[in-house]
Design a protein around this nucleic acid. Structure first.
Lengths: 191, 191
DNA sequence: TGGAGACTGTACCGATCGGTACAGAGAGTC
DNA sequence: GACTCTCTGTACCGATCGGTACAGTCTCCA
């Protein structure tokens, strides 16, 4: 029998996703509890389930979609349409460095790919990486590389980013990430 | 008031760890429940807590220790003492490929490094990677590389392995892992 | 033969899990 | 003012969480 006063905060769905995103990022899908999400957003379950009727799975799916959209707009698009491959790759590298806060931030898509929740989100995870892979390979082709070399180097770049995030966090040394990005950029257009 | 017959399985602690290891590997630390571990080992909580009085945290710590020991014996030691750097690196690559089942298996140390449980196991995680890094850099020095180049290339190799596991799983394509290992080996002793 | 001690299943614990139900509060609309 | 609709906190649900307690069963050794 609540009698109380209910504060009205008027949350915007768009403001919510980044907050929820950070909870999934630092706790993983299974570790991100509604209690943690509630604390991070300042919202009770009522509000959370108002915005996301399908609960935790929907929150994660929408967070993944938002991340995908950010990369689509800020990274993939430029890769596809640029007519200056070297510049496009430099832009990608700078964008990635900014997004992952020079190695302080972890890749949620990678985290989910490694966990048991991959089965639930496998198509979103696969789509994210393969669209990135395609866009980057396209840029490399335009730089004169053969299709097979372009695809090999592009996969190498993606895995370098993911591995650098893992190792930087494991060693608690973000310099690893910065160095990996330098190496990656050099390798992409070498020879 | 149990009346029943209790089957006696006589489990060996040494046989338990690999089974528990796979549960942590595929579910992460937070996702690995006692129920899953019980199912994987065929043991009830009674037996589990008999072998691991400190519960889940102790299980994970011992699994990490066993992994560390395996790499120490099968990978790091050869790296440190070999007088044929090219052969040592070929052996490491082959060993890594075998251990990770050509990309079908995930790295538990990496999984933990990315998750929230890193805080609990940070020293074990850091130790594993930095000892690997040191051993590999030592090999590269013996191959004539400067200290700084050796350390840079060695970190690059470690992060390539981790990233390849992430990307292979994300794209559900183990060829990514095999190719990354080939590239890594070539890069380690290049020029 | 009869402890002693290692190993086992299971009942149980309080806490927390994801999710539901619902009533109250605020802002508009007529 | 009465009605609607959106957003809110909270009480509550059954299930499961990690962990404890304990009695039963086995093996070993005197």
């Amino acid at each position: 029998m609540a009698k109380g006063t209910i504060a009205r905060t008027v949350s915007e769905r768009a403001d919510l996703l980044p907050l929820i995103s950070e909870v999934f990022r630092s706790h993983g899908y299974e570790g991100a509890t509604l209690a943690l999400i509630g604390k991070a957003t300042g919202l009770g379950k009522g509000s959370l389930y108002h915005f996301f009727p399908d609960g935790k799975a929907q929150m994660a799916a929408e967070v993944l979609a938002e991340i995908d959209h950010w990369f689509e707009v800020n990274i993939f698009a430029a890769l596809r349409k640029s007519d200056d491959p070297a510049q496009a790759i430099a832009d990608m590298t700078a964008g990635v460095d900014r997004y992952f806060r020079s190695g302080h931030r972890v890749c949620l898509v990678g985290v989910i790919a490694l966990g048991a929740s991959r089965d639930i989100f496998s198509s979103q995870v696969q789509d994210y990486f393969s669209r990135w892979n395609d866009a980057l390979a396209q840029t490399l082709r335009r730089a004169g590389l053969s299709t097979s070399v372009a695809r090999r180097r592009s996969a190498d770049a993606l895995l370098t980013i993911q591995g650098a995030l893992v190792l930087a966090r494991a060693l608690d040394d973000t310099k690893v990430f910065g160095q990996a990005l330098v190496d990656m950029k050099a390798r992409l257009l070498a020879k």
